[in-house]
Design a protein around this nucleic acid. Structure first.
Lengths: 213, 213
DNA sequence: AGATGATTCAAACGTTCGTTTCAATCGGAC
DNA sequence: GTCCGATTGAAACGAACGTTTGAATCATCT
């Protein structure tokens, strides 16, 4: 057992999670082999099973390590937010965009954006568990701020907000390809203002008249 | 060589693409093995390499088969669209949502939404090639309809539109999980009106004042 | 019927994967 | 120094993968 609670040295466990995080983001979870991960972490192949039990356990640890602080920060900012849709949006978007900007945590931004699309059942369960409180607290705040909208409409729109954020942090590079460099903002650097403006207007839109189909 | 240009029977080639499409959507491209695909298609394992050369060739064929008609329909609807942001949006969204609603083509909807996040280089190149004209034509139409916005802002917002659509067709099931069934609209069934309202308001928002960071 | 090219089939190849095993090594406690 | 649990190391396992091969089968034309 490690006597010191705060390890100062590298730490095989953390090195493995760092290497896995970056390789998951680069190649996808399935395509990132334990051999590539342990090589990047300068660790032994068997270390994964010693510390995490299995590859699935490593995946779980990689997501849990960052999702808990990320969503805690969101809830903290929501508490401090005022009564405007923009401030609530900022509280939801900024922690994820900050991760995406950070060179070190940037890999997890791309990984998280991709995670919602993962076919893997357990990853989906992890996300649903970790995001459940955030989803309920933020939609509740929006219901209070937008009393003229039916609750179902709020749920749809928050779903859109999350999707736009995920697409931005995971595929921010695509906009540069499509725009032939006319949008030279690297990744999610300048995306925050664009996102807030766009999404706040969408959230404030009057309820749609549901057309017969 | 097949003498009749229109085969009436099943057709191994098409069966393989159908099976691959559904399995790619269910498990992801990497996780869908050729053995599972050929089994579902009731074909031999070697048939993939005979008809497509490799698994990568099958992936290419699966995407190209649907993307070309999808984007052609989008351009056709854009030609017929009037001068409102809503009609341009409809032209972009509806063909994809129709695919997502269709029980048979529904699998490709989920697959396409996930495709933008794929780490695979060639898939990204296929998407960029297939979407390049759609992207330019639709952004050009929006630039004309929203002259008060800088072009870079339009590009960002169309990027958001595409992301929201992709997230909706690929992760429409998530909203049911998070909302505890309060949004009972199955998949992308009733999403069209919500999407158009939300996105049109976002597109029409005044340009953001870029804050110093 | 026989020939010919297109297609299907079963079987195997070599590689890579996650996982397991067990011995070697390390770091404090006594 | 000695012991002991925690950690690391090298090597191998069985399974699953994409791919290849060569013969068998099928459809079509002369």
């Amino acid at each position: 057992m490690n006597k010191t609670m705060e390890p100062v040295e590298a730490g095989t466990r953390e090195s493995l999670m760092d290497a896995a995080e970056s390789l998951f983001a680069e190649r996808g979870i399935q395509a990132a082999s334990l051999r590539a991960i342990t090589e990047r972490a300068a660790a032994n192949l068997a270390a994964v099973h010693y510390h995490f039990g299995s590859k699935q356990g490593l995946v779980r640890a990689v997501f849990s390590r960052r999702l808990a602080p990320l969503n805690a920060e969101r809830l903290r900012l929501l508490e401090a937010a005022g009564e405007s849709v923009e401030e609530v949006l900022q509280a939801f978007l900024e922690p994820a965009l900050a991760m995406s900007r950070d060179a070190f945590h940037g890999a997890f931004g791309r990984l998280l954006g991709r995670a919602f699309m993962e076919p893997d059942d357990e990853i989906r369960e992890i996300l649903i568990e970790q995001f459940s409180e955030v989803f309920h607290r933020f939609t509740a705040a929006l219901v209070r701020l937008l009393p003229e909208l039916p609750e179902a409409e709020i749920l749809w729109r928050f779903h859109f907000v999350a999707g736009t954020l995920g697409h931005t942090v995971a595929c921010g590079h695509l906009i540069e390809r499509f725009s032939d460099g006319r949008c030279s903002m690297g990744g999610a650097e300048g995306a925050a203002d664009h996102l807030v403006t766009f999404l706040a207007a969408g959230l404030r839109a009057p309820a749609p008249i549901s057309r017969p189909r």
